[in-house]
Design a protein around this nucleic acid. Sequence first.
DNA 1: TCTTTTTACTTGCATAATACAAGTAAAAAG
DNA 2: CTTTTTACTTGTATTATGCAAGTAAAAAGA
Lengths: 114, 114
Amino acid sequence: MSHPKKRSVCPVACTLDLIGDRWTLIVIRDLLAGKSHFKEFADSPEGIATNILAARLNRLVESNLVERRLDTTKASHPEYRLTRKGRSLKPVLSSIANWGMKNIKGTAMKVKVD
Amino acid sequence: MSHPKKRSVCPVACTLDLIGDRWTLIVIRDLLAGKSHFKEFADSPEGIATNILAARLNRLVESNLVERRLDTTKASHPEYRLTRKGRSLKPVLSSIANWGMKNIKGTAMKVKVD
DNA sequence: TCTTTTTACTTGCATAATACAAGTAAAAAG
DNA sequence: CTTTTTACTTGTATTATGCAAGTAAAAAGA
């Protein structure tokens, strides 16, 4: 089963059960920005711990928002890519980024997500 | 200081430092839906624990997304209301709700937020 | 070929966040 | 008065996160 614990039938609550934590949307932001390897995510300025990163990537793959590709020319360097479902989170990321830029001083976007 | 720990200057990360957890956006959803009292939030189907709810409301007031009104006719029954800044999170909630309705089966919206 | 570096993790442990149950104080209702 | 309701707080168990270190395999360099 993909989503074992559902707090309610509310779409907000259900979505937060998937992405409502401190790190998942940071990883998705990086994926939208074109990053695809473990180290790239780990090197982001927020400094996610590697055990947390591994756990988040596994969860994202399990929930079908991300696919892990092992069939690269370089073996053992899996590539992580957003699925179509994962890419459809772009409006969520955009609205969050826009809110942050307007409401939190000192914020700046380094990469254009769109 | 209102926001002590900032992981980076990224607007996504900074916004998640404020609202990126399991419960904050659920409370904001309820506020957008017109709820204003502690018990109303506690009675939502997700079943937030009362200590967590109290902590979230305090944080939201501290970060100026919500105001606590004690000057009601009924004393000791504070009313919680979104500030203008808090209401400006509506597009974030909408995009999350829309994503959930399209991508998670079994979800349903009970109240129209708009 | 052998050694070093890089990548992608895992493991162990301390700390922080959350969940659950219960209790409390003040106001309102009966 | 007594009971109920509301808005919390407190204590403790469980879970999540953070931090440092270690590991295995591949790639790069001497």
